[in-house]
Design a protein around this nucleic acid. Sequence first.
DNA 1: TAAACTGTTCGATGGAGGTCGACCACATGA
DNA 2: TCATGTGGTCGACCTCCATCGAACAGTTTA
Lengths: 127, 127
Amino acid sequence: MSIRSRSDSAADAGGPAGSARARNLTHVHPADVPLQAALDAVADPVRRAILCELAGEPDWTRACGTFDLPVGKATRSHHFAVLRQAGLIEQRDAGPRRVNRLRRPEFDEAFPGLLDLVLRESPPTGG
Amino acid sequence: MSIRSRSDSAADAGGPAGSARARNLTHVHPADVPLQAALDAVADPVRRAILCELAGEPDWTRACGTFDLPVGKATRSHHFAVLRQAGLIEQRDAGPRRVNRLRRPEFDEAFPGLLDLVLRESPPTGG
DNA sequence: TAAACTGTTCGATGGAGGTCGACCACATGA
DNA sequence: TCATGTGGTCGACCTCCATCGAACAGTTTA
């Protein structure tokens, strides 16, 4: 079965009440994401860059602002929201920062192979 | 190695010279397709419908006009061209018709799991 | 309280691409 | 040659979405 405790680690992360900001953080489990939304999410190169950077480091160690992206902070915020609604990332407030986690196992179960393709994408090999 | 005889079955299909129309039929091997193009190709619902229909029948049995699609023939022609350039389908002229083949093994090798996701997509299950 | 930092929201803009109608090109058959 | 049937090409339109600047909100520290 693919039905699991979908309200487990997402919204409740960070404590029972959290802050007012944390309550605005809505998450979607990958199992509830339509294929269309998943494909749209990974079809954008900026979002794929976020996913690749995120995959290279431990969970909850990267805040949104620490990513090297060729877009302004408004656009960056938009992309993180898209990734969150597509079930690709999980976010948690840590002080003024918002740290991220790649939802690899859950997303892999819902869309086998898709995330692997994205993370296998090699940038221009620098040579 | 992923390098194989990429000029093998695509452009040469249908005989040495073929017709004048057949010479305009340019194919791209999946191994030469960027991930961006592959994702863009499968991100469109009309194109996914084509792929699903194509997967349900033997190769070279479906002409472009026989697909049940909610778009005009100009748009349909455009979508087939996109699928061809993305290495997802192979086309061959059969008289006035243009028959299609899903390049499943080649595409699977280049983008493992992606086509499976598309073909696994279940429409509203009708009940 | 104020300042600095992080991130979101809002409104507007621009470009990419899906869509169409019309016309064109090719193959078949009479 | 003409008619028909299939599919491609062209130009235009239009919608969606990525992008930005500006303003706003929450957190931390002074």
